[in-house]
Design a protein around this nucleic acid. Sequence first.
DNA 1: CTCAGATAGACAACTAGGTTGTCCATCACC
DNA 2: GGTGATGGACAACCTAGTTGTCTATCTGAG
Lengths: 170, 170
Amino acid sequence: MSIGVPRLLVMSRSGADLALLLLGGFRTLVDGAMVELAARGYEDFRPTHEFAMRAIIAGADSASDVGRRLSISKQAAAKTIAVLVARGYVSSDPDPSDARRNRIQVTARGLDVLREGEAVFEDLRARWEETLGAAELAHLEASLVKLVGRATVDPEAPGWVGQDGIAGEK
Amino acid sequence: MSIGVPRLLVMSRSGADLALLLLGGFRTLVDGAMVELAARGYEDFRPTHEFAMRAIIAGADSASDVGRRLSISKQAAAKTIAVLVARGYVSSDPDPSDARRNRIQVTARGLDVLREGEAVFEDLRARWEETLGAAELAHLEASLVKLVGRATVDPEAPGWVGQDGIAGEK
DNA sequence: CTCAGATAGACAACTAGGTTGTCCATCACC
DNA sequence: GGTGATGGACAACCTAGTTGTCTATCTGAG
C-alpha cells in the first residue's frame, strides 16, 4: 500500500472538508437513529420511509402526490409506498370517489415508528447538546438555517444524496 | 391532495430537523459543485469518484487498497475504478513486481478535476462566508469538528448515506 | 353528451453504488 | 514445496432512484 505517501502539493481543502463535515454529521445522526430504531423492533425501517410517511401525514394521499411532495417520480414513490404497505406502516385502499386512485394512509404502527424515531433523534440531539453546550448547538442550527433555509423543515425535495435529477412526467 | 391538513399533534422535530439541516447543507454544497464541474467540462464526474481518487492519491495503488481505505468492498472499489479508468481519470497497469495486482494511478486529467473540484468547493465556501461572516462559519466548522471529529478530513469510510453495512471479506 | 386531454397507476428496463459468494492465479513464508 | 493469504474477476442481488409505455379513469370544453 506504500503508506505515508506525502500529500503531494497542499491543495487547500476547507470547502470540500466542510461538505464532508456536514455529511459526517448527518450520517452520525441518521446511522445512530437507525441502529436505535432497529433495537426497538423496527429493523426494516429506512430513512427514506420517514420522508414518505411524513409526506403522507402532510396531506399526500396517493402515490403520485407523494412523488410530487418529495420531488421524486411517481414510480419511485409507488415503489417506496409498496414496501411501506408490505411492512404495515401504510395502508392503501381504492378511493371510492376516484377509481384511478389508491388512497394511502399511515397506519397506527406507522405513527408509532415516526414517534419513536423522533424520540430517538431527540436523544441524539440531546447528546450533542451535552458535548457542545446548548448555546453553541443552537448557534450551529441557526447558521445552517441561514445557509440552507427553512426548506428542509417541511421537507421539499430530499432526493437524498447527489442524484442530480428532478422527476418529470414524460 | 387535501392541502392544509393540520399537523396532527405537534411532535417536536428538532433532532430530525437538525439531521435534515446537515443533509441540506451537504447537498447544497455538493449539488452546486457538481453543476459547476459539469459546466467546466467534467460532466461525468460524481462525488464518489472524488473519494476514490483521493484514496489513490493518499497511497492506495490497487483496487483492494482503495476498498480498504474507503471501507467498501474490493468489488465495489473495482467497479468505481473501472469507470474512472474508462473516463480517463485513472490509469491501471499490471504491476511488474506482482502479477496479481493492477497498479492504479490518477492521471493528469484526474488531477485536473480534483484541483478544479477543490476550487469550486472553495468558491462555494466563500459564498457561505459572505452570507454568514467568517467568524460564524469558522464557528460552525469548529462545532462540527467537535461533533464528528477529524475523521472526515482524511476520509475514512464515507460509505455515503445510510448504507448500514461495512464491507467484509467473505 | 361526447370527446380530448390530463391524471393515476402498473409494468418494464435501466442506472449508480453498493452488497455477497465463488473462483482462480499468484505470492509469501515455514 | 505445499499452505494460506491476497488480488482480481465474474455473477447475482439490493436499494433508491430514473425513463418510457400503456391502460383506465376522470374532467372540462364545446
